[in-house]
């Protein structure tokens, strides 16, 4: 994002809206720090500037800087998934798609969340740690998949290493018995990254919202407490498009 210095009247209203803290006074006017800005679009979207001094940086749509926008602006669509947002549809439509079955568990590593964002070198620390541990089941429709240079090593594209994103989701879908191994890897790599990630698991429910015993045992054995609030697909969906309906 850029602020047109010749238009800005230096009221400072835009500054607290920036999640990255990228807008500062430079003399009497506000200025965006290009390195810190994640191109999330918030300052422009909230339309707070009284003189319309804030505008899109034309280079925000050019590779490699464009990854900032697609992984930081929730209204920017991803080409791979066709949906806006940071991931695929995960558990949300699982009653219709059957993507995660009874023997499987989905794992989502939400890098940079909440709030801090993450540099791509840190994302690579996670992708490499997963690859080293033999965990290569990265969801192919996940937008982050396009950043991989080599799935077998977890290397991301070298030309992205100077970029930062507010949030990107590494999604895996594995057999339940692999969950403890994955959690152990993530526990270790959490000590190496210079930012944060949130972690979540999704699996099928039994009657009366019974959570999979295998999943709970894995969380218990690896020392991962889960939060009391969750996202629950209440089972009202069904497929009707012929090519996919079974």
């Amino acid at each position: 994002m850029i602020i047109r210095g010749e238009v800005c009247v230096g009221c400072g209203r835009c500054q607290p809206y920036c999640p990255a803290g990228a807008i500062h006074f430079s003399g009497l006017k506000s200025e965006v720090d290009r390195e810190t800005c994640l191109e999330c679009g918030t300052c422009l979207r909230v339309a707070i500037c009284p003189v319309d001094a804030i505008m899109d940086d034309p280079t925000a749509f050019e590779y490699p800087r464009a990854v900032r926008k697609v992984f930081s602006d929730p209204t920017a669509p991803h080409i791979a998934t066709g949906i806006e947002g940071r991931g695929t549809e995960e558990s949300k439509t699982n009653d219709v798609t059957g993507r995660v079955g009874p023997d499987s568990v989905g794992v989502a590593i939400e890098v940079g969340r909440p709030t801090l964002g993450m540099g791509l070198p840190d994302v690579q620390k996670i992708s490499r740690a997963l690859a080293r541990a033999g965990i290569t089941e990265i969801e192919p429709c996940n937008p982050i998949h396009q950043m991989y240079a080599d799935e077998s090593t977890g290397d991301l594209r070298a030309d992205l290493m100077g970029e930062r994103v507010l949030s990107a989701i590494i999604e895996l879908e594995v057999k339940k018995d692999r969950l403890p191994h994955i959690l152990r890897v993530l526990k270790e790599v959490a000590k190496e990254v210079d930012s944060v990630f949130t972690l979540d698991v999704y699996s099928l429910l039994g009657p009366d919202l019974e959570i999979s015993k295998e999943v709970l045992a894995a969380l218990d054995s690896e020392g991962f407490p889960w939060r009391p609030n969750a996202k629950i697909n209440v089972g009202l969906g069904r497929a009707w498009e012929e090519r996919r309906a079974s």
Partner: peptide, 29 residues
């Protein structure tokens, strides 16, 4: 929302929840 609340509500309404996505919190720095 809160898992226990949704469980009671689903039971009362007669819904059969299908999939759960659980948060394991924040990790790293």
């Amino acid at each position: 929302g809160l898992i226990d609340r949704v469980r009671v509500m689903a039971r009362e309404i007669g819904l059969n929840p299908h999939t759960i996505n659980m948060s394991l919190g924040i990790h790293g720095r």
